[in-house]
């Protein structure tokens, strides 16, 4: 049975929920082997595209595992995603564009918008379950305050 749009959409939303929960193991199960993950934006100041994170599968896994060793922001991140578009590229691949808003809630309970951007995902739809084969988090927001140890 071919992978449906609904399955693809659910994959994207699950990636948000699992990252919100910081359940990194379950989050990584949503990715295909050999995936790449990047956070990028266009810098108005230097008039160039730039990458603020650029990791392959092994590097990303190690990064997520090391998070508890870091002084990460004390509050929590919540992601709000809207799948805007799913474009199929043959039988095996789909390009998915998702609008993303990330909120940050301080330990005292105040919430503010941390960043807005889009996920540009390549989804592997060749198997029983769709899997993220490549994710580019393209940020609109370039001023992210204290920054984040946890990816978006």
């Amino acid at each position: 049975m071919p992978i449906s749009d609904e399955q693809i959409t659910r994959l994207i939303y699950r990636s948000c929920l699992r990252l919100d929960a910081e359940d990194f193991e379950a989050y990584l199960e949503l990715f295909a082997p050999e995936f790449e993950y990047r956070i990028s934006n266009y810098s108005v100041e230097i008039r160039k595209d730039q990458r603020w994170m650029d990791v392959n599968q092994d590097e990303y896994k190690a990064l997520l595992e090391s998070i508890p060793l870091h002084s990460k922001p004390l509050g929590t991140f919540a992601r709000h995603a809207n799948v805007y578009d799913i474009e199929r590229n043959g039988e095996d691949r789909a390009k998915v564009t998702t609008f993303l808003t990330v909120y940050y809630t301080t330990p005292d309970g105040g919430t503010k918008v941390f960043a807005v951007g889009k996920y540009f995902d390549e989804v592997d739809i060749s198997g029983d379950q769709p899997l993220i084969a490549d994710r580019e988090v393209r940020l609109e927001t370039r001023e992210v305050g204290i920054g984040s140890i946890v990816p978006m």
Partner: peptide
């Protein structure tokens, strides 16, 4: 950088 291991700290 903002998503680096040291920047936020």
């Amino acid at each position: 950088g903002p998503y680096s291991r040291n920047g936020a700290e």
